[in-house]
Design a protein around this nucleic acid. Structure first.
Length: 820
RNA sequence: GCCCAGGUGGUGAAAUUGGUAGACACGCUAGCUUCAGGUGCUAGUGAGCUUCGGCUCGUGGAGGUUCAAGUCCUCUCCUGGGCACCA
């Protein structure tokens, strides 16, 4: 072997070995239980950033560890290839999105190969391949047949200057990012998937998903947002046949008698009706149109509203309540109208204060809680007051009594409501999967016949302005109506790119399946055993993917109900305290780090920097240390080999020093196994191996028997570090004279006898403060330990002449003597 | 605004079940080696005090539970992620 660590030479060699032996080719028939750990596939933005390196290194570590444990591992890679950045590049540079994307993929694939990931490249695909996206078109048609897909109007951000729909990201302070024009809300017919049909299953199953972090399950639960309450009909005074009741949903029917007004969204039919005859209302509705569709903006904006001349009748008291139009009521949620109880809802309270609407108290506290509705709403549950026959009831009693009273009058009903809305999948963009629908003047909307799939997205396009080229492309647009045969127009909207990422993990099982979305191999590899990706995907992507898995299950394509058995949410790699983005420069580009330090050092540094679930600010500082550590291992093994081959050894005849190193080696092996397999914390594996190497380096070897034990310790260090730094481990392993390549080796067994200690060090505390250290026999009893502890000279100083109140002995850890 | 995380030395972090806070590294300081160095090695490195034995303080902040709290409870501040058309 070379005496100097040369990462580039050994990394090339190791990768050549793996390629020649097809080490990462996954086969359904290989021995061992299948294991499928997947990192969320990347958007091919140009080059890898450190977030990618971290994600796929972690995935590679987990998969390589499972290889060592004898599993049949499948590690694929693909490309989430549709999306906005490709269009932006096309608009800016005139390069068609398809070729831009292809070039990016080629470059990033090269970087991944350079990093030595154990990927089965035979399974690679990009979501912009028609052979891939044809199957989501196929599924969409199936769902259309089943009634799980429908079309309705929905609000988008409209840029009146560029005449285009904007993504929320493209709206900056209410203005279009390119034109600077004030963005408007505009209604458009869009395709929706009925994810709400699966809301209960998606919610309920979370309780069984023990492999998912509680935080993610909690976020999803809140997102689905099941709430039980009552739907109440308020008759509209002077209403017409078409519009004679206003329906609201509330989770607090116990406060119904405290309602002093009702509020509707600016897009609500009642608001639009009022706007026709009232110019002030009309002006307010216009102002509300000039707002983005983002919920965060709605929630933080100044609450505002306007009274209409309309009134409704309280279903129980018969009282007349005014109807207000308010900017904080969401048309998308519930019925787009709320009853307002300013005494017991803080937002209603602030609104009532602002507009001088009466505030009535109908709930009083049970215990000694603060309640003064002149200063704030009282939002806790309590007992009903000022509510006639319902007075004195507690929350449950009041909900029940009021619901029954409403039901008896036919003015309300108990319902379960979900916050989750159906998934709008239409995007008015070019670079996406065409929605397989046809618009015929005579027949209306007609699905593309299955035999005509895929509807291929034309890739030879010229961008003129910001509009999708499809809209003006006759060769794409014009099509014979499948129903009547007359000339019709294709749908020019494409799918939300979340559709592609909702099922790609199953396609990796069988990327070449050409007669089915996924074939029987998906029943072998799916579900994914371990899914790894950024915490920013905790809700949307993971919820849509779960939804799609159930859709595929219902088409008899996959086994089980959930796509991801275990889930690891990575913290973000930050830059300047923020999520890394393409625009933040090349500081995140790993290329120059790879060139300078090599793949193993980059991998080790990114693993050593922080535990996986923690966000961290990227810095190159760790590279130097990682590189130094690898050099240290190299030199250690080099010195060892120079002294000759590894002799056999008798574990009973080791020197004390060699015995201690051997114990450390087996401790490290045991801890690494636990860290890799159970704790999913790999930075401590690196530090563990560092400690082991430090101890090996310090030991003065006395004889050949000791040398045998050191040879064992070195091998343990190499195996333990191999998932993280596989190239150097591969190289040194063969330099040690091992004939089997490290990639084919199995994780060794811990020798429990090596872990045994004859004596243990313990800490002695007096009143919880450390006052000394003692060493006692490992099997010493409590009395003996206490005796030694109380004899320790510094302990004596602190207990002398005091009364001993309590003595606590925690075996192998500490003694605490409590004195007075 | 709502939901979910996180906050520990100069820096990245460790402390797994309530039991020695700061392992392992980076950086810095001093010394040695080499000497051209992006080299290697040794020692020191939380703050303050010290009679050099030790002592006091210390995990964003305030309170609490406990023999014992980074860890559990209550409140609070700050930072990050998500909020349905960025992926």
């Amino acid at each position: 072997m070379n005496a100097v660590y040369d990462p580039h030479a050994i990394e090339t060699q190791a990768q050549e070995h793996w390629n020649e032996h097809d080490s990462f080719r996954a086969s359904e028939t290989d021995e061992g239980d299948k294991y499928y750990c997947l990192g969320m596939f990347p958007y091919p933005s140009g080059q890898l950033h450190m977030g990618h390196v971290r994600n796929y290194t972690l995935t590679d570590v987990i998969n390589r560890y499972h290889r060592l444990k004898g599993f049949n591992v499948m590690q694929p890679m693909g490309w989430d290839a549709f999306g906005l950045p490709a269009e932006n590049a096309a608009i800016k540079n005139g390069i068609p999105p398809a070729s831009w994307t292809k070039d990016n993929i080629a470059y990033m694939r090269g970087q991944m190969q350079r990093l030595g990931f154990g990927i089965d490249w035979s399974r690679e695909f990009a979501t912009c391949d028609p052979e891939y996206y044809r199957w989501e078109q196929w599924l969409f048609l199936k769902l259309f047949e089943k009634g799980l897909v429908y079309r309705k109007n929905s609000v988008v951000n409209w840029d009146p200057v560029d005449q285009t729909v904007l993504a929320n990201e493209q709206v900056e302070n209410g203005r279009g990012w390119r034109s600077g024009a004030v963005v408007e809300r505009r209604e458009m017919a869009q395709w929706f998937m009925k994810i709400t049909e699966y809301a209960e299953e998606l919610r309920e199953e979370l309780d069984q998903m023990s492999g998912w972090p509680e935080s993610v399950k909690s976020m999803q639960r809140n997102w689905i947002g099941r709430s039980q309450g009552v739907e109440i009909d308020f008759p509209i005074n002077g209403g017409t046949d078409g519009q004679d009741t206003l329906t609201v949903f509330t989770t607090r029917p116990d406060t119904l008698l405290g309602a002093t007004y009702v509020a509707v969204a600016a897009q609500h039919p009642l608001a639009l009706l009022a706007a026709e005859s009232d110019s002030d209302v009309s002006a307010f509705v216009e102002v509300c149109k000039k707002a983005t569709t983002a919920e965060a903006d709605l929630a933080t904006m100044e609450k505002a509203g306007i009274a209409t001349s309309a009134t409704v009748t309280h279903p129980l008291t018969g009282e007349s309540l005014p109807v207000w139009v308010a900017n904080f009521v969401l048309m998308e949620y519930g019925s787009g109208a709320v009853m307002s109880v300013p005494g017991h809802d803080q937002r209603d309270w602030e609104f009532a204060r602002k507009y001088d609407i009466p505030i009535v108290q109908v709930i009083e506290p049970i215990a000694d809680e603060q309640c003064d509705i002149t200063t704030a709403a009282f939002v806790e549950h309590g007992n009903v007051i000022n509510s006639g026959e319902f007075d004195g009831l507690d929350f449950d009693g009041a909900v029940d009594a009021i619901a029954r009273a409403l039901e008896a009058k036919g003015a309300g009903r108990r319902v379960t409501n979900y916050r989750l809305r159906d998934w709008g999948v239409s995007r008015q963009r070019y670079w996406g999967c065409p929605i397989p629908m046809i618009h015929c003047e005579a027949c209306g909307v007609v699905p593309v016949p299955e035999a005509d799939l895929p509807v291929v997205l034309p890739t030879e396009v010229k961008f003129e302005g910001v509009q999708s080229p499809l809209v003006t492309m006759d060769s794409f647009l014009n099509v014979d109506c499948p129903s009547c045969g007359k000339v019709a127009r294709r749908e020019t909207d494409t799918f939300d790119t979340f559709v592609e990422s909702s099922w790609y993990y199953a396609r990796f099982a069988c990327p070449d399946a050409d007669t089915l979305m996924v074939d029987e191999r998906a029943r072998i590899w799916a579900p994914v055993d371990f899914y790894v990706g950024g915490i920013e995907h905790a809700i949307l992507h993971l919820l849509y993917a779960r939804f799609f898995y159930k859709l595929m299950r219902d088409e008899n394509l996959v086994a089980g109900n959930e796509p991801f058995h275990k889930l690891l949410m990575l913290g973000m790699v930050l830059q300047g305290g923020k999520k890394m983005s393409k625009s933040s420069g090349d500081a995140g580009d790993p290329q120059k780090l790879l060139d300078r330090y090599g793949a193993d050092a980059v991998r080790t540094a990114v693993i050593f920097a922080a535990p996986p679930d923690q966000s961290f600010e990227w810095s190159e500082a760790g590279l130097e240390g990682a590189s130094r550590f690898l050099r240290k291992i190299w030199n250690l093994v080099d010195q060892f080999i120079t002294a000759g081959p590894t002799p056999k050894f008798d574990r009973s005849k080791l020197s004390d020093g060699a015995q201690a190193v051997r114990r450390k080696a087996h401790e490290t092996l045991k801890k690494a196994d636990d860290d890799f397999g159970r704790r999913i914390q790999f930075n401590t594996v690196v530090s563990g191996v560092m400690e082991l190497c430090n101890e090996i380096g310090k030991l003065k070897i006395v004889d050949d028997n000791d040398r045998g034990a050191i040879g064992e310790a070195i091998r343990i260090a190499l195996i333990a570090i191999s998932p993280i730094a596989p190239h150097i481990a591969h190289s040194l392993w063969s330099s040690l004279g091992e004939t089997e390549a490290l990639i084919d080796v199995r994780w060794p067994k811990v020798d429990e006898s090596a872990l045994q200690q004859t004596s243990v060090k313990m800490v002695v505390q007096v009143n919880g403060k450390v006052r000394g250290n003692i060493e006692v026999a490992a099997d010493a009893d409590k009395e003996h330990i206490l005796g030694v502890a109380k004899a320790e000279h510094n302990v004596v100083k602190h207990i002398d002449g005091k009364e001993i109140v309590k003595e606590i002995v925690v075996p192998n850890k500490l003694v605490n003597v409590v004195v007075r």
